[in-house]
Design a protein around this nucleic acid. Structure first.
Lengths: 141, 141
DNA sequence: TGACAAACGCAACTCAGTTGCGTTAGAGTA
DNA sequence: TACTCTAACGCAACTGAGTTGCGTTTGTCA
């Protein structure tokens, strides 16, 4: 079963309908590998003649986040970004000059060890972490 | 030379005046160890009978950030938070239920090693990173 | 194919932060 | 101490991201 089929199964188990808008919105996430804002989604849907109201975009993003299809990412500006959650856990490089975002994979064994230590010492249950690197990309530095 | 004197020296080298508002605002950061939003600052200044216009708060926070006295922190909501930059580099535990924020120190040697590797592989100059842990605090879990 | 709830659009709103512009007040100089 | 220059400040109006209420449309299942 491919990713798309898997997602449509998840939708069904949450009693979410397979509307054209929802399908098109999820497909936008498959077409782009970088985190997308509500504005990005709106723009892309308009491009393919499937323009939707911004309320719908915000509500849909929140619903898809709730059931775990997409995850929220902060990239240092005032917008909320989202990306497919089923992708391998990764982090981001964000260029402070041109704002380009690149994914990076990391060996997280040391980080997970630290999490374990913190949970014990602080009695804090860590559910997730966010790790972003800010600096200058190849072109801007 | 104590921290406060050091800051006032930094202000002088940037030709920034030592107004009552600026002094009071910086003192708020010294009184609280947690990251503060513009609203937090406004509220605290009002409490001590030094209420200032919100435009002034935003402009002042940006100026202090520019000259490196405070640093910006994202805590997962729509607000921008700031904390004294001269404090030892640290990270945050953020409770997803009650929103309490706690500082944590970490052994970052492994993380710095990864940064070095990324810089080499991706030709990206890393200037800073942000690492936040989200979960449930002692009281909420 | 009818009914019911999910999905949707629209307009008005909230909230954090910004801009333009005129006034006030530190701080160096005479 | 008074003068001057400009940083600092306040106010009102604005922007941009995201939210809410409510009425209408549309999938889905019996």
């Amino acid at each position: 079963m491919g990713y798309e089929e898997e997602i449509f199964t998840v939708l069904k188990t949450h009693h979410l309908r397979l509307t054209k808008t929802r399908k098109a919105l999820i497909e936008v996430f498959f077409r782009y590998e970088v985190p997308l804002s509500a504005q990005d989604i709106s723009r892309e849907l308009s491009k393919i003649q499937r323009a939707v109201n911004k309320t719908t975009v915000y509500r849909e993003l929140e619903r898809l986040r709730e059931i775990g299809i997409i995850g929220a990412v902060q990239l240092g500006d005032r917008k909320q970004y989202y990306e497919l959650a089923l992708r391998r856990h990764h982090h981001h490089l964000i260029c402070l000059r041109c704002a380009v975002v690149e994914d990076i994979d990391m060996d997280e064994r040391a980080l997970l060890g630290q999490e374990k230590r913190i949970q014990g010492e602080k009695h804090f249950t860590i559910l997730r972490h966010s790790l972003e690197f800010f600096g200058l990309c190849k072109m801007c530095s």
